[in-house]
Amino acid sequence: MADEKKIKVPETQEGTVVYNLDPLIIKYHYEIDYIHSYAQDTPFFAGLAAGKLMGSRCPKCGYTYATPRAHCMHCGGKTEWVELPKEGTVHTWTTCYFGSEAFLPETPFTLIMVEFKGANTLFLSRLIGVEPGKAKIGMKVKAKFLRNSKFSPTDVYFVPA
């Protein structure tokens, strides 16, 4: 039989961050990497790397989505990919001076929803090159793309046209 004194969990130098004793409040770390598939949205992200803004159109009812979706929300039909124009108009905007933790370092940033000629829906993006708080509804804007794609919707952004 093994020596009972030697059967034990090894001690480590790691401690626990304690914020408060009563009630006892500790730091609990949690982190995760997802294996995220863009699945049916893949051609949009591939398009960004090629400097193209891809939307989708329903061949049955003609409804055109500036933010693509694989099936039409009106008639349920399978949509087809279409390239959107690179110029559009600001439908609405805001400048964020605060944000979610992940985006705090990027504040202030300006969000816009873009209208495109020939599209029935809008597209959310960032507007660069305009002072915080100075965007305007109706402003003409044009798309620019990162040279080195990150395969994120922020690979495209807009600047005043």
């Binding site: 805001t94 979610s100 940033f109 959310l124 922020t154």
Partner: peptide
């Protein structure tokens, strides 16, 4: 499409 662009609810309601 939305969260990575600047996911922030106050931003959405502001727009």
């Amino acid at each position: 499409f939305d969260y990575p662009v600047g996911g922030f609810y106050t931003g959405y309601y502001a727009m």
